[in-house]
Computed example of a mutant assay.
Amino acid sequence: MKKGFIFIIIGTVLGALLMGCSQENKPVKITNPMDRAISHYILKYNKNKYLKTDKQFEVHKLYGASKNGKGGIDVYIYSVYEGFDKESKNKVKSGGSLPALVKLKKIDNQYKVIGYKEPDDGSGWTPSIKKMFPPKYANEAIKGTGVEAIQHQLDKKVNEWLENAK
């Protein structure tokens, strides 16, 4: 009788653990509010990191996103950030591009960035991306897959801004 009871308890505990873990790494669709939260955060994060400019823009390539098991969402992106001055027309005054891991969480009914990690510089670049990203996204991020397309999106935003600034 005791053995049967112990097996029931062990089975229940294992089942509960497996159910809780089953949500981890589950793919997540990124919504517009999530996307805006990411861009807003990156613009704010980079504002004092680069030279002061009249206007800053950020676009990113989404490689994927998954639940992280801590009630949040891990988002794997390649971000392009550039700052411009009106007098320099569409010549970049300041900026950068790189892969990043963004951690989102829904707080008070809106998404907030609760973590942001960029890869290490130099020889640490590739190993740090491989630590930050799942293998299926790491190779794309290392190659910069999709960056050319998002650069075109950024250029379009800049040209619209310059047209409206006249």
Score class of each variant (00 low, 15 high):
134 P>G: 11
127 P>A: 00
61 K>D: 00
12 T>P: 06
10 I>T: 12
66 S>Y: 07
121 D>K: 13
71 G>A: 06
159 N>K: 13
147 V>F: 09
44 K>R: 13
38 I>M: 04
129 I>H: 00
159 N>C: 02
135 P>S: 09
117 K>S: 12
51 L>S: 10
9 I>F: 12
104 L>A: 10
103 K>V: 12
7 F>I: 13
31 T>S: 15
75 V>M: 09
111 Y>T: 01
21 C>F: 15
30 I>Q: 02
81 Y>M: 03
6 I>C: 07
54 D>T: 00
112 K>Y: 09
157 K>A: 10
52 K>F: 09
138 A>P: 07
26 K>T: 11
105 K>D: 05
18 L>E: 03
86 K>D: 04
46 N>P: 05
131 K>H: 12
86 K>V: 13
34 M>N: 06
13 V>Y: 07
102 V>D: 02
165 A>W: 03
75 V>R: 00
107 I>L: 15
67 K>I: 02
134 P>I: 10
58 E>L: 06
101 L>V: 07
111 Y>D: 02
141 A>P: 07
9 I>Y: 11
69 G>M: 05
36 R>P: 01
154 L>F: 04
128 S>N: 03
57 F>L: 03
41 Y>P: 01
12 T>A: 15
153 Q>E: 14
149 A>D: 14
32 N>S: 14
134 P>E: 10
71 G>V: 09
88 S>Y: 08
83 G>A: 07
100 A>N: 04
118 E>Y: 00
122 G>L: 03
54 D>W: 00
11 G>H: 11
162 L>E: 00
85 D>F: 02
125 W>L: 08
122 G>E: 03
82 E>K: 14
11 G>I: 09
61 K>W: 01
